[in-house]
Design a protein around this nucleic acid. Sequence first.
DNA 1: CCGTATCCATTCCGATACTG
DNA 2: CAGTATCGGAATGGATACGG
Lengths: 147, 147
Amino acid sequence: MRRKNLSGAACPIARSLDVIGDWWSLLIVRDALKGTTRFGDFQKSLGVSKNILTRRLRTLVEQGVLEQLPATDGSAYQEYRLTEKGRGLFKVLVALGQWGLESLADTAPVRMALVDRTHRQPVRALEVRAADGRLLEPGQTMMVRAS
Amino acid sequence: MRRKNLSGAACPIARSLDVIGDWWSLLIVRDALKGTTRFGDFQKSLGVSKNILTRRLRTLVEQGVLEQLPATDGSAYQEYRLTEKGRGLFKVLVALGQWGLESLADTAPVRMALVDRTHRQPVRALEVRAADGRLLEPGQTMMVRAS
DNA sequence: CCGTATCCATTCCGATACTG
DNA sequence: CAGTATCGGAATGGATACGG
């Protein structure tokens, strides 16, 4: 049987994972946020084979995360740009990056961190806050039916 | 050939995805944050088959996201509890949940949202801020070598 | 340079049956 | 209830060759 289709799941986390829970998708979005738009640039950056990249790009376009536009440089090719929906994944990637930086043993020779472009200072750690501004720990939250 | 092992990648996002980029892992962590600790409860909640659940739990334990403890209820079985490292994924899940709620068409009959437990008010949208407090858009950030 | 098509290996998942 | 063992099918990824 196929992997469960959870696009209709009540939990928004499950729905999100149904769209970008695949391994490559978020890395493509990461590069797109960095400004990458061209097929070959994605390929070089990710080191993924071309057919896989084609497939991933197509599904991301179908899901409305990316949009395909004629290249602005006059070439006959396409550009892949994030939609507003796709740019919404920025926070997800920041969260993933901060977790990786703080919680994962660094076997990497080089570590990268996200900084503010103008001052080159690290971005603040994300915070989960209540409507009244209190910092929330996991145990202080719960999922309920919305609307 | 195997999927690339990116545990040594420079980018912390890639390293994170190498650990929890799989589809089930974050759903297990989601339930664990909700307080689920028992094998059978995970299984009922996720609707995943038992052998898969066994495998996922084991790798999450190996990676230090969960820890296995003797059950406190006197039964002969195990409990699975989040480590500090695992609890760090809370923000990732909040980000995913907020994205799903705001950006994904809701075909679900029931929508769930994360609320503050005491006031039952929705949690604030996450914000990416610079060290000086400015709100940052994706284009105002960049990845650089950390230390 | 930008993709697509084909083929193959691997991984992953689900169903089922089984043990303690 | 809490797992393990085995099997088959599906999805995924990589290599390569090919066409626009």
